[in-house]
Amino acid sequence: MSTSLTPEFLDRALDVALAAADAATQVIRRYYRDGVEVETKPDQTPVTIADRAAEAAIKQVLREAFPDHAYYGEEEGREGDSEFLWLIDPIDGTKSFVRGYPFFSTQIALMYRDEIVLGVSSASEYGELAWARRGGGAWLNRARLQVSDAADFTPQTAISFGNVKTLSRDARWQTLAQIVQRCGRTRGYGDFLHYHLLARGCIDLVIESDVNILDIAPLVIILREAGAVFTDLDGAEPGLATTSVLAGPAALHARALAEFRAAVSG
């Protein structure tokens, strides 16, 4: 472990991240109850004053503790230059937020030299708070998290999908159909929820083909500390350019990845 990433430093940084998530919750809860005007960003996704105010609240807490770190937020982009980069999505699931149902969350992660080393996933209105730091295990509402021991696609296997629009145009689409036919349960829980369920061992695999790193950064370390393998659909390590997800227990992840690779190789 780098001397910059001692357990003491990571514990302190995690405490600060949890405090930042709590600050965002106070902002979000007020706007969630009162309602907000919705704007459309150039990429056609919605944004509200709650998104911007929550991001500002998060950054204020983080900057007081780590003024020399860099920041990459969903609403304000990247600021600063440092080996330490905070990744912030103040409201992941704004479409749910503006329509008044609680499938949205605040996502905060710390990346050190391109590796995600801690994360907080706060679904305040749903009532779940998950967190992890490298080497410290993964937790949800103070209960230790552990993924299932699923190793193959069987009638007992449960998988969940997020957005798979890009995958539907891919050579792997038929392979996904074959996987679905062998599983006992398929759902599209999406957003933070299926990652929390995966970390708890309630479902066995998550597949997504259209994500942004800010949507998933904290969930990478949370799932890994819960015993999962978390890559993109090509098996690559998550990074700032990641757009897809394959996550699950090691044996099941390996089987899914092998089948997807076989589809691509022809």
Rank of each mutant, 00 (worst) to 15 (best):
F84H: 05
D43I: 12
W86N: 03
E55W: 04
I28L: 14
T45L: 08
A57H: 01
I91R: 01
G73Q: 09
P46M: 06
A70C: 10
Q107F: 06
K95H: 09
G77T: 06
V98D: 06
E75K: 02
R99I: 08
D92E: 00
D81C: 09
Y31I: 10
T106V: 08
A21P: 06
K41L: 15
F103V: 12
S82L: 07
G73L: 12
K59S: 10
V98T: 10
R99K: 13
Y32T: 06
F84K: 01
D89P: 04
D81M: 11
R63W: 10
R99D: 11
V38P: 05
G100A: 06
A21H: 10
V38Y: 11
Y101G: 00
D92I: 00
S105Y: 01
I88W: 00
Y71T: 06
T48A: 08
Y32Q: 07
D51H: 08
A56F: 14
F66A: 08
G35E: 11
Q26P: 03
V47W: 07
A70L: 12
P67E: 13
L85A: 09
R52S: 08
G80P: 03
M111V: 13
R52E: 15
R78V: 12
Q107T: 05
D68K: 08
Y112Q: 02
Q44W: 09
Y32R: 05
L85Q: 07
E74V: 12
E37K: 14
R29Y: 08
A65C: 03
A53Y: 09
E83W: 03
R78M: 14
A19G: 14
T48Y: 09
D92P: 00
A57G: 02
P46H: 05
G80L: 08
